[in-house]
Amino acid sequence: MSPGELLLEPFSLPFMQRGLAAAVLVGLSGGALGSLLVLRRLALMGDALSHSLLPGLALAYLFFGQNVGALLVGALLAGLLTAAGGALLSRLTRLKEDAAFGALFILFFAAGIALVSHYPSRLDLAHFLFGSILGVGPEELRFAALVSGTSIALLLWFRRSLALHAFDPAFHRATGGRGGLVHVGLLALVVFNLISALQIMGIVLSLGLFILPAVTAYLWVERLAPMMLLSGALAALGATAGLLLSYHLGVASGAAIVLTLGAFFLGSAVLSPRHGLAAPLLARWRTGKRVLHRPD
């Protein structure tokens, strides 16, 4: 088989086409969103949030089957309960927000696993946890397009508030910004994008599509807008390459995408000329070349 066929042949299948389109769409908006999560130091909180969606999804699936609307509402309720519960616990008890969040999300995840394991014939645990590209039907693709389009539009519309709030919350507030609203809005966008990524990535890995390209971009660029653009582009590229790997090697699509993005990240962590592990060596080599002079 020629290299061209290796790259193109998988995407002649309709389910691969839909999977690819959905993955690229979610990657574009999720990668941009991931940049904000990384800069706000919410990367781990986002991961916790993704796990806490399981009971909502399981309940929705149990009652309404494979219905995008029901899954969305279920996941949204579970996500909001965790986020609001964490905020409430940190206000009313001595717990800090990350501790309250960490305690709640594992509770929600366990409740989800309990539900799924109690109805093994009707719910496939592996399907929820690891996703399945076969599950991306026309309806799921439409939902992914809607979520990505809306997310990108909202990120553009609120770009200044989001950037100010991430960089300098006190100044944001002093100039009339509403920090709480920006925070909740950002988390809500994350939940929507997580649900959109669910079929391809699965609950356990879906945040990887957001965070890995963001940290990779962070190692290369010095401004926020290029970081978000690069991160979105990397996520889309990684999703495409990951789906190809998944097809040829028979690996779960989510894992293949995360591993591809992980390779980008590890390569950047070593090679980035200004922020990578090799950066000090590179700097020494450069100054060495400059001060080197041969004896006459």
Binding site: L39, F167, D168, A170, Y218, V221, E222, R223, L224, M227
Partner: peptide, 9 residues
């Protein structure tokens, strides 16, 4: 109070 690793000029 500000993170100076923030990507901004």
């Amino acid at each position: 109070q500000v993170d100076y690793d923030f990507p901004a000029t």
